[in-house]
């Protein structure tokens, strides 16, 4: 008796292809986005493993050696203290990426909670919450962060908080817009007419449908945060030695760029390439997750 039942279940399980799967198929066809994804994956792994895979130790100086051009021993050359540039860039990337991810995570949490609450409840709560966002939007945050760094010293934790505090605003707006649009869609109304609790509706019907834009915006927030960090570090207002970041390395590179241009080029390439990868990935994800392109 077991055999026919098995056959029947086989016949029933004609699996459909979810929007996530469709998006992945589309993303796979996008070469630039795939390139971005692989660069990102490599970066994340090399950052995690830096202390073990870096060719030299972080503090190792060789003042006798001084600045040398790329060679077999030092693939990306050495700086004026004879420190290996590849090692420096790897350690700098760790910090840059960490700032990017943590500050984005801060922005993500605040933005989603704020935007979803405003969008879901609507009415006066929404008006009040979004008015606050509007006011904060009008503030010159770039200047504020500079000010914060000046007043409280160059504290890396403060940097995360400050950057996260700027970036959550857009996230809140995006999430709220999504939730507002979804709230009026008929399938949410259908869920209401089934008597589902508000929490169930949020969990089963609203959140899965807001994830697409949130993922896209997150991918695009990381590079803009990294850029902000590099900007501050370049001005000497961000990461401080002995810590290092790409912005700081670029700053040092500029000082000696006439004599040792590779000290500017390599950290610059590292930063640009990362920004490039993340932006292409974000664009690719947007195309892949856009419901308008999924119909044809």
């Amino acid at each position: 008796m077991a055999e026919p039942v098995k056959d029947m279940t086989k016949e029933f399980e004609e699996h459909g292809s979810s929007l996530w799967k469709d998006a992945w198929i589309k993303l796979r066809k996008n070469h630039m986005a795939l390139f971005g994804l692989s660069v990102l994956v490599i970066l994340i792994f090399s950052s995690l493993l830096t202390p073990w895979i870096a060719p030299y130790s972080y503090e190792a100086q060789n003042l006798d050696l001084g600045a040398t051009a790329p060679s077999m021993a030092h693939w990306l050359g050495t700086d004026i203290f004879g420190r290996d540039m590849l090692t420096r860039i790897m350690y700098g990337g760790r910090v840059s990426l960490m700032v990017g991810f943590i500050a984005t995570a801060v922005a993500l949490v605040i933005g989603i909670l704020w935007g979803a609450t405003a969008g879901f409840f609507g009415g006066r709560i929404d008006a009040l919450m979004m008015r606050i966002v509007d006011i904060l939007y009008a503030l010159p945050f770039m200047i504020f962060i500079v000010l914060l760094m000046v007043v409280f010293g160059r504290n890396i934790l403060l940097l995360f908080l400050a950057i996260g505090a700027v970036e959550w605003l857009t996230m809140a707006r995006i999430v709220r817009g999504q939730v507002m649009a979804l709230r009026n869609l008929e399938f949410v109304e259908a869920a209401n007419s089934l008597g589902l609790s508000q929490w169930t509706i949020i969990r089963r019907h609203i959140i899965p449908n807001t994830l697409g834009p949130v993922i896209v915006y997150t991918t695009l927030t990381i590079p803009s945060v990294m850029l902000l960090e590099a900007f501050l570090s370049f001005l000497g207002l961000g990461i401080q030695p002995p810590e290092s970041s790409w912005g700081l390395l670029i700053n040092y590179g500029v000082e000696t760029m006439e004599e040792y241009p590779w000290l500017l080029m390599f950290p610059g390439i590292a930063l640009s390439l990362t920004l490039f990868a993340l932006n292409f990935l974000g664009d690719g994800l947007r195309d892949a997750l856009d419901p308008r392109t999924s119909k044809d």
Binding site: L227, N251, V254, E258, L264, G268, S272, F280
Partner: peptide, 22 residues
Amino acid sequence: AMIGICMPSFLLGPLLVLVFGI
């Protein structure tokens, strides 16, 4: 445009100086 976005001013400026100035 994508290159422009990924080439922040603090990198582009020195590069321009290096190439066109020096």
